[in-house]
């Protein structure tokens, strides 16, 4: 409670223009955040980069006046860092780096399409999360999205089943996707595989 109070005080001071308050915030959470990032990426330079990117996001959010975590500063910055760590691994997967070695083994770079148990778990978790997000949508949009994405129905079939025009079904699908993105962004949710 005391820590949360102190955080919110520092945040208020920083928003009011006191740059030293930012130094205080960084110093206070430096070790915890750095160690958390390092425990995931295992590399000092990458840890530094992610730490900086985390606080750049913090600075921008505070300065924009859009921070509304109501005293939960540490979980918030940990979540930002967590998302950045995922982005980092995503980029690394997209652009694999190969270490120079005397023996070049082509089989080391080949994989099968079947998901390993860990990736399958992640995929299952994403499906579950997505299912919960879809539940948040207005019923008319949810209905169209489920028919299209899960039942693989055409918009003509959707229109016949729901009794609305094809254009209306298309519009509902569009707003369903817009609203899903909005929910994901507003809640800093990361869906990744």
């Amino acid at each position: 409670m005391e820590q949360q109070l102190e955080d919110s005080l520092l945040i208020q001071r920083y928003i009011s223009g006191d740059e030293r308050a930012l130094e205080g915030l960084i110093a206070k959470h430096n070790q915890r955040l750095s160690s958390f990032i390092y425990s995931k990426v295992g590399n000092r330079s990458i840890t530094e980069d992610i730490f900086q990117d985390t606080f750049i996001k913090v600075i921008k959010t505070l300065r924009r006046g859009t921070y509304n975590e109501e005293g939960k500063f540490l979980p918030w910055i940990m979540r930002i860092a967590h998302n950045l760590i995922i982005d980092h691994f995503r980029k690394s997967n997209r652009m694999p780096m190969f270490q120079g070695a005397d023996s070049y083994n082509i089989f080391a770079m080949m994989g099968d399409d079947k998901l390993d148990p860990e990736r399958q778990n992640i995929k299952d978790q994403i499906d579950l999360d997505l299912g919960m997000l879809i539940e948040e949508l207005p019923s008319d949009q949810r209905e169209v999205l489920v028919m299209r994405m899960y039942k693989d129905m055409s918009f003509k079939e959707i229109s016949e089943n729901t009794g609305v025009s094809i254009n209306t079904a298309l519009g509902r699908m569009r707003y369903a996707l817009i609203n899903l993105r909005k929910i994901i962004e507003e809640n800093d949710i990361v869906l990744t595989n």
Binding site: I26, N30, Q31, L33, S34, S35, Y38, S39, K40, V41, G42, R44, T47, E48, F51, Q52
Partner: peptide, 11 residues
């Protein structure tokens, strides 16, 4: 990788 570390002064 479970070490307590701090970011550098430069950062």
């Amino acid at each position: 990788t479970c070490q307590l570390i701090q970011t550098r002064r430069m950062s």
